[in-house]
C-alpha cells in the first residue's frame, strides 16, 4: 500500500541518505525538475551510488527520470536499472506509444544488466492535457505500468488554468485519471499539495483525494507525510463497520438473501467488496483488518 510517495531531490545527499526516516510508504528520487540542468550528471551518479549503498532501505524506491525527448533519459535508465528500483517514473507522458518506447528501453537495460525481465515497473506521470486525455490507453498499454500519477502544476500551466488550493481546476483531471486507472486495474496517485506550511490544507486535500478514489498521494515535504498517511489509513470506525458488513452479509447468505440492512442502510455486493478492500488495506498496514 502506497499511501504517501515522498519526492527527494536527486542531488541532495543529506536527504537521499535519510530518505527512509520520514515515514513515507515510498520515496521518489528525483532526477528531473528538482535537479538543475547543469547538475544532471552529478545527480545521476549520486542517486546510483545511494541506491547501491542503501540496498536495505526500509522504504520502496521510485526514481523519476528525465523526459523521453531529452538526452538525459537514456543515461538515467542506463544508470538506474542495474540497481533495480521498484518503479521508474517517466515524466510528461503523453500517449501509449511513448510508454512503449520507455518500456522497451527499460527491457533492453534489464537484459544487458542481468536484471530479471519485467522486474522494474513504470509509474507514468501525467501532467499535460494530452496525457490526461490519453490516460486510459497509457494506464492499460503495458503490464509494466503499475500505476499513474497526476501532476497538477504542469497540467494547470498546460491548461492555462489558475492553480488553487481547492483544486476546482483539476477536478476533471482527477476524476479522469482515477477512472482510467481503475478501468485498467492499476493504482492511481494524486498530485502533491504544494503549500508546505499549510497542514490543514494538506490534510483536507488528501482526504478529498481518498474520497475520489486515489490509492495515495505524492508529497513534496516530509512534513506532509503524516497527514497524507493518516488520510489514507482506514479509521477504527471504518474497520469496525467493515467487519459488521461482512458479519451481516454472512448471516444474510445463511438465510438465502443477497442483501441485508445494517445501521439502516442496505448492504449488498458493492458494499461488501468495499469492506473487504478496506480490511485488506488495514491488514497490509498491520491494523486489525482480519475478516470476522
Amino acid at each position: 500500500m502506497r499511501r504517501s510517495l515522498l519526492f527527494i531531490p536527486g542531488n541532495n545527499p543529506g536527504m537521499l541518505v535519510s530518505a527512509d526516516i520520514h515515514g513515507a510508504d515510498a520515496v521518489i528520487f528525483d532526477l528531473e525538475d528538482a535537479v538543475a540542468p547543469n547538475e544532471k550528471d552529478a545527480a545521476r551518479l549520486l542517486v546510483r551510488n545511494a541506491l547501491r549503498a542503501m540496498r536495505d532501505l526500509r522504504v520502496e524506491v521510485v526514481v523519476r527520470v528525465n523526459p523521453l525527448a531529452t538526452d538525459d533519459f537514456r543515461q538515467d535508465i542506463a544508470a538506474i536499472v542495474p540497481l533495480q528500483p521498484s518503479l521508474i517514473m517517466p515524466t510528461k507522458v503523453a500517449d501509449a506509444d511513448e510508454v512503449a518506447v520507455i518500456s522497451r528501453t527499460v527491457a533492453d537495460a534489464e537484459r544487458v544488466e542481468g536484471v530479471p525481465a519485467g522486474a522494474i515497473g513504470l509509474l507514468p506521470l501525467l501532467e499535460t492535457a494530452l496525457g490526461i486525455e490519453n490516460a486510459f490507453s497509457i494506464a492499460g498499454c503495458d503490464p509494466r505500468v503499475k500505476g499513474i500519477l497526476l501532476g497538477a502544476e504542469d497540467l494547470s500551466s498546460d491548461l492555462q488554468a489558475v492553480r488553487s488550493k481547492q483544486g476546482q481546476e483539476i477536478l476533471y483531471a482527477r476524476g479522469r485519471v482515477v477512472m482510467a486507472a481503475r478501468a485498467a486495474g492499476i493504482e492511481v496517485y494524486d498530485t502533491p499539495f504544494t503549500d508546505v506550511d499549510d497542514m490543514e490544507g494538506v490534510s483536507a486535500d488528501a482526504k478529498l483525494a481518498r474520497a475520489l478514489g486515489f490509492s495515495g498521494k505524492a508529497v513534496i515535504s516530509p512534513r506532509h507525510v503524516a497527514a497524507v498517511n493518516a488520510a489514507f489509513t482506514p479509521t477504527e470506525d471504518e474497520i469496525v463497520y467493515a467487519r459488521e458488513v461482512l458479519l451481516a452479509i454472512r448471516e444474510a447468505e445463511r438465510q438465502g438473501k443477497g442483501a441485508v440492512s445494517l445501521r439502516g442502510k442496505m448492504v449488498d455486493k458493492p458494499i461488501v467488496d468495499r469492506a473487504r478492500r478496506l480490511l485488506d488495506g488495514a491488514r497490509s498496514l498491520g491494523l486489525e483488518g482480519t475478516e470476522p
Binding site: 545527499p13 541518505v17 552529478a42 551518479l45 549520486l46 551510488n49 545511494a50 547501491r52 549503498a53 542503501m54
Partner: peptide
Amino acid sequence: GALDCTIAARVEA
C-alpha cells in the same frame, strides 16, 4: 561529512 557513496559519486562526476 559526506558518506562514502556521496564522496565516490562526487569524485566520479
